[in-house]
Simulated scan of single mutants.
Amino acid sequence: MDNRIEWARKRDELVSAIEQLGFPGELGVQIAGQLGSPKAMDRMLAYLYNVKPGTAELIVDEMLAICSDIDSWHNKKAAEEANAKYNELLYYGLGTED
């Protein structure tokens, strides 16, 4: 499936879930934009369906927590990649020997 179509479907589902809780749809549009991926929106939807937060602040707080988790994961993967390159350098050296 085209990622743009999947993203749009998840955005619409997120907007609908937020509207069902009594909040404006624009909040859902903004949150979807901040989350950025269908997988992140799925996490937010699970929160909305299970917790049913009563304030917009709780919704935004959860969005920030999800974004923080994603950033931490990206940082961890970047550090692992850098560590692997460093270990490769230590093992094989610079390759400048004659």
Score class of each variant (00 low, 15 high):
28 G>I: 03
29 V>S: 02
46 A>R: 14
24 P>K: 11
56 A>Q: 15
32 A>H: 04
25 G>Q: 08
63 M>L: 10
60 V>M: 14
21 L>P: 04
66 I>M: 02
51 V>A: 03
66 I>N: 00
20 Q>E: 15
68 S>C: 01
73 W>L: 13
46 A>K: 12
36 G>F: 09
32 A>N: 04
46 A>S: 13
72 S>T: 06
71 D>A: 14
28 G>N: 02
71 D>V: 07
35 L>Y: 06
48 L>I: 14
71 D>E: 15
50 N>W: 01
43 R>N: 07
43 R>W: 03
69 D>Q: 13
21 L>F: 05
24 P>D: 12
37 S>I: 01
64 L>P: 00
64 L>I: 06
43 R>V: 02
61 D>T: 13
35 L>P: 03
38 P>W: 05
43 R>F: 02
44 M>Y: 01
28 G>L: 03
22 G>R: 10
73 W>I: 07
40 A>V: 01
55 T>K: 10
65 A>W: 05
67 C>A: 14
67 C>F: 01
20 Q>N: 15
42 D>L: 10
59 I>S: 08
60 V>P: 01
24 P>W: 03
69 D>S: 11
67 C>D: 06
28 G>Q: 03
50 N>G: 00
42 D>E: 15
70 I>Q: 14
48 L>V: 12
49 Y>Q: 13
72 S>Y: 05
33 G>K: 13
28 G>C: 04
54 G>L: 06
31 I>F: 01
36 G>V: 10
36 G>L: 08
30 Q>P: 00
69 D>L: 08
33 G>N: 15
58 L>A: 13
60 V>H: 08
27 L>S: 05
51 V>Q: 05
26 E>P: 00
24 P>T: 05
56 A>D: 09
43 R>C: 01
70 I>P: 00
24 P>Y: 06
52 K>R: 15
56 A>L: 07
59 I>M: 14
34 Q>L: 11
47 Y>H: 15
50 N>I: 01
66 I>P: 00
24 P>L: 04
52 K>G: 02
49 Y>I: 02
40 A>F: 01
28 G>Y: 03
28 G>H: 02
68 S>D: 13
27 L>T: 10
39 K>D: 02
36 G>I: 09
42 D>F: 01
40 A>L: 09
24 P>N: 08
35 L>H: 06
52 K>M: 08
40 A>I: 01
32 A>M: 04
60 V>T: 15
27 L>N: 04
21 L>C: 05
70 I>V: 14
55 T>Y: 06
31 I>S: 11
53 P>F: 06
20 Q>W: 09
34 Q>K: 13
23 F>T: 06
69 D>H: 07
63 M>V: 14
28 G>K: 04
70 I>T: 12
38 P>F: 03
59 I>A: 08
